[in-house]
């Protein structure tokens, strides 16, 4: 038996959208929100799932949790078909929706957690152990008696994460867990997730717009656009796939016409004596530097690494 905990094979979700086309006529249009995605996630992995708005991230999460029924393909989480056995799966997964709370607006956190305990039928001792751990690590001690509506966004998010973990889920899905949080709250949430993954072995799948989340948490990243998987691998590998470029910035003795004729580079900008030369991220900078030094009056230089956000932005628009 393989330990592929989450298995997607050619997963599809097609929505029928009706649009007004004239006074009475309505056009039906197919929107392929998820268009044949396949991947597997092993137990204990921590995976980032990124893509622009409307790329199909949330739709995928909704299918993984059993909220949405797939239109095609095969899907298994812990051997369970989520859409068919939604409530049985519910006991084994935790879900955090960044944009909306799963807590009860008017109830203090403590009461919300009591309700969660009864819904998931968590044994009392286990519940207390888990709650104590979450309260300590997520710094919820002073917030337990506060009604959810009085919590700040960051406090509420921490409260939500704790609520999703009280029943010891084997996998935790987080849809935009750091959206709208301040730097301190983001750091707390990231540290907690990282500890959870390494200490408890909980499988974590998170969607985000914030690449810092991915850089700090996930060894593996999946990029999705227009319902298709564009990339699946280490964050660093994105540079090669995304054909990203490094930048050699040179300061010359005086203002000169743009540097030309050095193989594998192109001058993208000049500003007085300073010039910017782009070259493939996979190429070595050394021969380029030595040729510039031979042919031009070089004063100073620096090499700038490509910005991962630019790389991904190029992937989104590059098709």
């Amino acid at each position: 038996m393989t330990d592929d905990f989450i298995v997607l094979e050619g997963l599809e979700k097609v929505f029928q959208v009706r649009r007004k086309a004239g006074l009475l006529r309505r056009e039906r249009q197919e929107v392929r929100a998820v268009d044949g995605i396949s991947f597997t996630v092993a137990r204990g992995e921590m995976v980032g799932y990124i893509g622009p708005n409307g790329a199909g991230k949330s739709t995928t999460i909704k299918m993984l949790t059993g909220i949405l029924t797939p239109s095609g393909g095969r899907l298994r989480v812990a051997g369970i078909d989520p859409s068919r056995e939604r409530s049985r799966l519910a006991r084994r997964i935790g879900v955090v929706f960044g944009q909306r709370t799963t807590l009860w607006w008017d109830l203090p956190l403590r009461d919300s957690y009591a309700l969660v305990r009864r819904m998931y039928r968590i044994p009392e001792a286990r519940f207390r152990t888990n709650l104590d751990r979450c309260v300590e690590l997520l710094d919820l001690g002073r917030l337990l008696e506060v009604p959810v509506r009085q919590l700040s966004l960051g406090q509420r998010m921490r409260g939500d994460i704790a609520a999703a973990l009280l029943h010891d889920p084997e996998v935790l899905y987080l849809d935009e867990p750091t959206i709208g949080l301040d730097v301190v709250s983001k750091a707390t949430v990231r540290r907690f997730l990282s500890d959870l993954n390494s200490a408890e072995g909980t499988t974590v799948l998170l969607t985000t717009h914030d690449l810092t989340d991915i850089e700090q948490l996930c060894k593996r990243v999946m990029v999705i656009d227009h319902g298709r998987l564009m990339y699946d691998g280490a964050l660093g590998g994105l540079h090669e796939v995304g054909e990203s470029e490094r930048m050699l910035v040179v300061d010359l003795e005086r203002e000169l016409p743009p540097i030309d004729g050095i193989e594998g580079t192109r001058t993208v900008r000049t500003e007085g004596p300073r010039q910017w030369l782009a070259f493939p991220a996979s190429a070595s900078a050394a021969p380029i530097v030595s040729r510039v030094a031979e042919e031009y009056p070089l004063v100073d230089l620096s090499v700038r690494e490509p910005d991962i956000e630019d790389v991904i932005a190029r992937m989104y628009t590059g098709r």
Binding site: I93, R100, T102, M119, Y120
Partner: peptide, 14 residues
């Protein structure tokens, strides 16, 4: 409309 239906569907209660 506000998506809170989804939060009900991920809980093990009908």
């Amino acid at each position: 409309r506000d998506g809170t239906m989804d939060t009900m569907l991920v809980r093990p209660v009908p």
